[in-house]
Amino acid sequence: MMIKDLFYFLIFPGMIFSVVMGGILSWSDRKITARVQFRKGAPFLQPFFDIGKLFYKETILPEHGARLTFLAAPVFALFSATLANVFILLPSIFPGSGFKGDLIVVFYLLTIPSLSYIIGSLASGNPLASVGASREIKLIMSYELTFILALACIVIKSGMSLSISDIIAAQQEGGAFIGSVSGVVLFIVILFVIQAKLALVPFDMSEAETEIAHGVFIEYSGSAYAIIKMARYIMLFALPSLMVTLLMGGFRLNGFGILWSVLKLGLILFLITLLRNTNPRLRLDQAMRFFFIWMNLIVVIAIGFSIIKL
């Protein structure tokens, strides 16, 4: 039992599988970006070369700062991202697995990577890192309410069930949630939340490369940064797969099901990348207004639609 759990956590669908999938998604993200800019783009194995190279390099510790916290934060980010990914994918692979309320657990686990980036960057003692951290905190505060409201709407649509496998089962009986009006609205909202959670361009003020030099990640180098990169690859895989699971009927790993799963993931990644490439970076107050007023309003409308079963 223990060995089986470890296998789920470390190999499939846990750490190794999700890092590989995240690396492939990250490559496709870079490739699509390059094609949008009429460039050729990076070679296929580049994300993995990057990680390997980072492990081989020196890790510099901050001279004035909490070194243990600085080093522990990426590890927490990696483990919680992996755990979230396992909880998201297991109900798709083995129908009926998972436990009551794992949707809430996944919601919390998906927040931990951002939180640990904040803690790690504040531990480094770098002023630009603390600017990035404060921006990240405000961004989390603005999108989490939207995210939990969207999840609540999905719970209402699935007939008040809090477990991911029940939500998948409800979609397999009554059609995927995206086929309804509220489903389409939720798709748009969750797409923006994912964009903010991944810190991609319209909402990347916490690591704005050009103004605060990677913000929260400024002091990380070597293996610590490699672990952060792995956590970010896993998040790039976990969040679209959460979206596929909750709105588009989940993954099915048999025959044409695999092709469909890949296509669903690809569609979401394509939308994320296009959003990233066609938008400038928002100011923090603009992003907060966007989530607090507009996105929350839209989610409340979606909840209204889902109560009257539209």
């Binding site: 390059a34 460039r39 050729k40 990076a42 070679p43 030099a213 990677h214 990640f217 400024i218 180098s221």
Partner: peptide, 16 residues
């Protein structure tokens, strides 16, 4: 010329 073909990127901080 697209230097990213060789996997190169400009980074904002010397730590990376």
């Amino acid at each position: 010329y697209d230097i990213e073909r060789f996997g190169m990127q400009l980074v904002g901080t010397v730590r990376h």
